[in-house]
Design a binder for these strands. Structure first.
Lengths: 127, 127
DNA sequence: CGGCATCCATAACGATACTG
DNA sequence: CAGTATCGTTATGGATGCCG
């Protein structure tokens, strides 16, 4: 019988740890307010930077570029640049991005389903 | 015919705006790394503060209490205090909490599904 | 043991200005 | 129009200590 302890330090184990830390890294990237709101706003459309900025209420220029770069880096969206003047840049979700979008949709659905429930819980707690 | 403009400012409209801002508020609370990791770690178990701290790798004492209070306030988890010495505090997801957990599960599933895909995208981007 | 308060470093963010 | 850089502020999060 081979125990977990005996396996510790073997290559397969190192791989698992690396995969875990990578998963955590991706999760940290993705599990933040602005990233999820951008993905939700984009949906299955193709939007320009300015349009996206208008859709995601309250986001600053800086936050939008920052998160768009991050999402692009992770392969969750495509960034298409048209070399015109003035420049035109379009963003579209990739297939992995649309996959994530499905889970964000679920989360938004959850939010609305429990809206009043949560509001009541808050009132109770705040007294 | 009644247009949206004409409806603006009526009570029903104000209600909608309030619901939206509440939804956004809840979303901001919930769409953060630590909150989601806590919910995922808790699962359908009942865990003590210390156990939870051990489960959620890398979380500090402060972040854990802070997020637990927030989740409790929103009615996503139950906090049960046993007035013993030393004190014993147990946390369990409520029904709304378990609902959210389902979406977090989906998100974790998504992460693992696209792990290598994302890793490749990153390598491509970083060159 | 779990919670709360304090202090402090630094990371996040918004505003602004400049570039292609 | 979109992106980048800089600056100053605010917010976040860790460390520590004390209390019930």
């Amino acid at each position: 019988m081979v125990t977990k302890q005996q396996l510790a330090g073997l290559p397969e184990d190192a791989d698992l740890r690396r995969a875990d830390s990578l998963a955590r890294e991706i999760f940290s990237d993705v599990a933040n307010k602005w990233a999820l709101l951008i993905i939700e706003a984009l949906g299955d459309r193709t939007l320009r930077f300015g349009e996206l900025r208008a859709e995601v209420e309250g986001i600053s220029h800086k936050m939008l570029t920052q998160n768009l770069r991050m999402l692009e880096r992770n392969g969750l969206l495509d960034r298409k640049v048209y070399p015109t003047v003035p420049p035109r840049v379009e963003y579209t979700l990739t297939e992995p991005g649309r996959g994530l979008r499905a889970t964000v949709d679920a989360m938004c659905g959850w939010t609305h389903r429990y809206l009043t429930h949560i509001e009541n819980a808050r009132d109770r707690f705040d007294t």
